[in-house]
Each structure stands twice: as C-alpha cells, then as structure tokens.
Write a protein that binds this DNA or RNA. Structure first.
Lengths: 148, 148
DNA sequence: TTGACTCAGTTCTGTTTTGGAACCTATCTA
DNA sequence: TAGATAGGTTCCAAAACAGAACTGAGTCAA
C-alpha cells in the first residue's frame, strides 16, 4: 500500500483517508456543513493558509463532496456547498463527536450542536447494527479477513 | 484556530483531528484493531516509512490509544495493543465504512469485515439518536451554534 | 477619477514533514 | 563466523505547509 494508491484500496477506511486524511479537510467540510461557505470566512475561522485552503476546496470538489455555486455576479463569486455525499458524512461526524467527548475530554463547550429536527433536542448518537438492532460496541463485534 | 491549538478546541471534530488528522494514523489504528500489532508487520502492510511509523506509534501511545506490551524477552520486543479508547473508535470506523461504500465505490472487496459476535453475520451499521430512536441522517438533524 | 476596500484567489520564500534508503543493536540459527 | 530477524534511528532529498505579499475584478465614497 502506498499513499498514492489509497483511492484504489479495497478497504473503505483507506479510501476515506485518501479523501479526508490530512489536517484540514474534515474541518473545512465541517464548516461548510455548519453554513460557512465562503473562501475568506473559512480561511479566517480555521487559520489555514489561503494556498492550502484553495487546494483542499478543489480536492473536495473533485471528490464530489463540495459544489461551487455562484452567489453573486459582478464580480462573479462562488460559495462552496456540501453535496449529498458530504451531508451523508454527518452521522460519521456525530459518531466521532461522541467518541471525542468520551475519550478526549475538554472543559470548553462544543461550539455547535446537532439537534433533532423535529424535537429540537440535542441528539445522542450511537451506532447500531441494522440487522440485529443492537448497539455496535467494541465487544459486540468480531473482525475477520474477508474471503469473498 | 491553529493546527497546534487543535487539542484544546471545544469542537470534538477538531480534537479528533488533532489525534487522527494525518495520512497514516487511522490506518495504523485499524491494523492494530485487526490484530496486526508488530512494528515490521504494520510497516510492511502499509508501506509507511519506518521513521514515520515510529513517530505515529509514539503519538498514539501518548494519546492513550495504543499500549506497548512485551511479547518476548531476550531480546525485549513489544507489540502495540489497542486500548479501550481505540476499541471505542470501532463504531466510528464502521460508520465511515458505510459512508465510503456508498460514496467512494470500488470493485475490490473489503479486505476485512465486521461481524456480529453472536450471529456471525456481517453488520450493517447505522447511526441513530438514542433519545428518539430514529436514524440520524442529513435531513433528520439541525445544526446550530451552541450557547451554553 | 482617484483612492480605498472587498473577496477570491495565486505567487513567493523559508521551514517542517515525509519518503527512501542505509545503518545500528541484540539475539538466535546454521 | 556469517546470516537472519526484529525494532528501531539516522541521513538526505523531495514534498507539503505556513506566512506574507501580490493580483485582479469590481464596488463605493469623496
């Protein structure tokens, strides 16, 4: 396995890393999901260098996670909107958030929170197995090499 | 926000990136969870340079995700075992795998698979909200700034 | 109609990180 | 004694990154 071969790996975790495996990409995606969609706004919020941000936005667009949409003519300017693919990553981010709250604790409050759209109550994410309906935990599952 | 400040961010996604936000770290973690726990084995499987692997293993140990355990004396040699923290990341990896299968398709088969420990059937992960019991999707949730 | 300002980048330079290969150390085996 | 095994460390060159300056289209206000 080589870094440049990751996009063609059979392993889904490896393919995910080929898209999101760097310092900034997921944070950019998070910001666009939170409604921050313009170049300068993202740059100022993250403190990322403009040059790297420019590159990451292009990569995310090429991978189908962001879409450039004009928000004004004269001068023509674009916003970066999350696609369905990016939106479908939200549950992963939620699971990640649950993990970090348990294992990387901090005093500071979460700057954003996810609410149930109907009840407007904060969500408490957990990963379950659709087949059995039970929660997936480190002890409930078994990993084995796949022989398809 | 700066890269070096990430560990102290309130945002859980940012703190997760401070630990796992690079090319290799999550792949190393994945291998240890799949039972590959020795330096040379990880190095050969991933094709990562030894020097970077050495650094990442130290970081993962420092962050409490891996534990060095001797597997022989004379000469003293260690294996890297996933801690509870690392094991608790498995559901996140599962959610990630579900996302990649949907949005980064490939012809190649998944090299490993997750089975339910009791039924020995492959798991179909989904993220639900413990409060409402409903699946968390991009349309079921609402994101807002947190004013605690 | 000149000058300042906005936004979205690109370009430049210097530092940090990474890749690739070689080397080191302790021990066991032929 | 020579070679193999395992787990690193050291060195150099290449790539990625940070920080700052610059560009360019257009607006606005004096």
């Amino acid at each position: 396995m080589k870094w440049t071969d990751l996009p063609n790996e059979g392993c889904s975790v490896a393919r995910t890393m080929s898209v999101l495996g760097d310092r900034w990409t997921l944070l950019i995606l998070r910001d666009t999901l939170f409604g921050i969609r313009r170049f300068d706004d993202i740059q100022k919020r993250l403190g990322i260098t403009r040059h790297v941000l420019s590159d990451r936005l292009k990569r995310l667009e090429a991978h189908g996670l962001l879409e450039r949409k004009p928000y004004q003519q004269r001068p023509l300017r674009h916003e970066y909107h999350p696609t369905q693919s990016a939106k479908d990553f939200v549950p992963v981010m939620q699971a990640m958030t649950g993990w970090a709250q348990a294992h990387l604790p901090t005093d500071k409050p979460e700057p954003y929170r996810f609410l149930d759209r109907e009840t407007r109550q904060p969500t408490a994410p957990k990963v379950i197995d659709t087949n059995t309906g039970t929660e997936i935990t480190s002890t409930s599952i078994w990993v084995e090499a796949n022989r398809d």
